[in-house]
């Protein structure tokens, strides 16, 4: 086993704590613009958050993202790094973080009416270790995410470990993807409360009729919910790609758009969406492919 893997595994063991709720696409930029319909996508590190098999499409990449949600109601950031090891093996590490501050702390006053006595925050940090392998003919790809989460909400802390598994079948014009997220995930709070995080099954397809356009669709299933996400990616130019999609066709129908701009070897990513009630979401990201 290589030295790097040993180090990562040690860190993984030492740093794990437990978290609750999926980040979904809250820290992604390109994946967000693609309406999270990325189970069969091959854009690499971001896609690995939903289907860890997608880590096998990176060589060596560093990325960071920043998001402002709903007119600055809260923020997310993500730092990620992935590298291929040899021809078939891939490693990635991400730290998605969500920061919610200025939450009013309130009580009832003597008249039974609300009274604010201070503020608190809700901070969630997750560590995601992604491992992937691909077959010699590059068609079959497998991956897994080992996730640990830590959340500090008011004065309580919660921790979670979880596992994602994913697979993709890749060909020139079509990719099929499948993944299971939150296998065995339980959010454990220091108050004694435990929350079972539902298992999520994702099935997706990506169709590439040519080098310019990709159609994406996937469905996410839990015991009680079903949803469908669809997206289009259009490579207008070698240096410019436009993405857009609709998340949760059966529920919120969130429309999102974005672009990837390649300048001097650096990808600048931007995504945008609007919620009719809560306001706008703006996301920016930087990706550097290091060779």
């Amino acid at each position: 086993m290589s030295h790097y893997i040993k180090v990562i595994l040690v860190l993984f063991v030492l740093s794990t704590t437990l978290f609750s709720n999926s980040f979904q696409d809250s820290t992604l930029v390109e994946g967000f613009a693609k309406a999270y319909a990325i189970t069969a996508d091959n854009s690499g590190l971001e896609t690995a958050q939903k289907n860890p098999a997608a880590i096998t499409f990176t060589k060596q990449q560093f990325s960071t993202t920043y998001t402002s949600y709903f007119d600055d109601a809260y923020k997310t950031v993500n730092i990620a790094y992935a590298k291929s090891i040899g021809n078939s093996f891939y490693l990635g590490f991400q730290i998605p973080t969500r920061l919610i501050s200025d939450i009013p702390e309130t009580i009832a006053d003597g008249n039974g009416e609300g009274f604010q006595i201070g503020t608190f925050s809700d901070t969630t940090v997750e560590g995601v270790l992604s491992v992937g392998v691909k077959s010699k003919n590059n068609k079959l790809r497998f991956g897994s995410n080992f996730k640990t989460r830590y959340q500090k909400l008011y004065s309580q802390t919660g921790t979670k470990i979880g596992l994602d598994l994913g697979a993709q079948y890749y060909s020139k014009h079509i990719t099929l993807g499948a993944s299971l997220q939150e296998i065995g995930s339980i959010m454990k709070w220091d108050t004694g409360k435990n929350e079972n995080i539902p298992l999520i099954t994702n099935l997706g397809i990506a169709i590439r009729p040519n080098k310019i356009v990709t159609f994406l669709a996937d469905t996410s299933l839990t015991k009680t919910t079903v949803d469908i996400n669809t997206a289009i990616s259009w490579k207008m130019h070698d240096q410019l790609t436009i993405n857009g999609g609709i998340k949760e066709l059966l529920k919120t129908q969130r429309l999102s758009v974005g672009l990837n701009l390649l300048l001097g070897g650096v990808y600048l990513d931007y995504a945008y969406s609007q919620n009719n009630y809560l306001g706008s979401i703006h996301k920016v990201g930087v990706r550097i492919n290091v060779f």
């Binding site: 609750s20 200025d102 959340q151 929350e195 009630y277």
Partner: peptide, 25 residues
């Protein structure tokens, strides 16, 4: 699930409307 949520209160007459938002955990 435990965590933070956002709420929106909209109060309106036939001609006017006011909205306030907040966070709860």
């Amino acid at each position: 699930f435990s965590g933070t949520y956002l709420y929106l209160l909209d109060v309106s007459s036939q001609t006017k409307s006011k909205t306030k938002r907040g966070k709860l955990s």
